[in-house]
C-alpha cells in the first residue's frame, strides 16, 4: 500500500543508535542490549523488504533473526555471569589486560 523507504530509514536509524550504544556505553549488559537494538533495526528492514516483494520470506528471515538474538542473549548473559563472578563489575573497560 505504500513505499518502504521510511521503514528502511527507521531500520538504519535504530541500527545507528545501536552502534552508538555499543561503542559508548560501558556496561556490558547495555552494550549487549545495543546489539539487540541493531537486530531490531535489521528486523524492521527485513520486513520492509519482504513487503516490497509481497511475500513472507522477509518475515521468516526476521523470525530466524529472533532465534539468533535469543541464542546470543543466552550466551551473553551466561558470559556476563562468569565475568561478574571474576571481577565483581560489569565495566567493559576492566577487561583490557591484553593489548598491543
Amino acid at each position: 500500500m505504500n513505499d518502504i523507504a521510511p521503514y528502511i530509514f527507521l531500520g538504519a536509524l535504530l541500527f545507528a543508535i545501536g552502534l552508538v550504544g555499543f561503542l559508548s556505553r560501558r556496561n556490558l549488559i547495555v552494550i549487549f542490549l545495543s546489539t539487540e537494538l541493531m537486530f531490531q533495526g535489521v528486523v524492521v528492514n527485513l520486513v520492509a523488504m519482504g513487503r516490497l516483494h509481497g511475500h513472507v520470506d522477509g518475515q521468516i528471515f526476521a523470525l530466524f533473526l529472533l532465534v539468533i538474538a535469543a541464542v546470543e542473549a543466552g550466551l551473553a548473559l551466561g558470559l556476563v555471569v562468569l565475568l561478574y563472578r571474576r571481577k565483581g563489575t560489569l565495566d567493559a573497560e576492566s577487561w583490557s589486560s591484553m593489548w598491543g
Partner: peptide, 22 residues
C-alpha cells in the same frame, strides 16, 4: 555505578555509527 554515568568516547561513537548509517 561510575561506568554507567560516563560514556566512552561518545563523539567517536556517534561519528562512526551515524556516518555509516547516513
Amino acid at each position: 555505578s561510575i561506568y554507567d554515568r560516563r560514556s566512552r568516547s561518545p563523539l567517536l561513537a556517534v561519528f562512526a555509527g551515524f556516518v555509516s548509517m547516513a
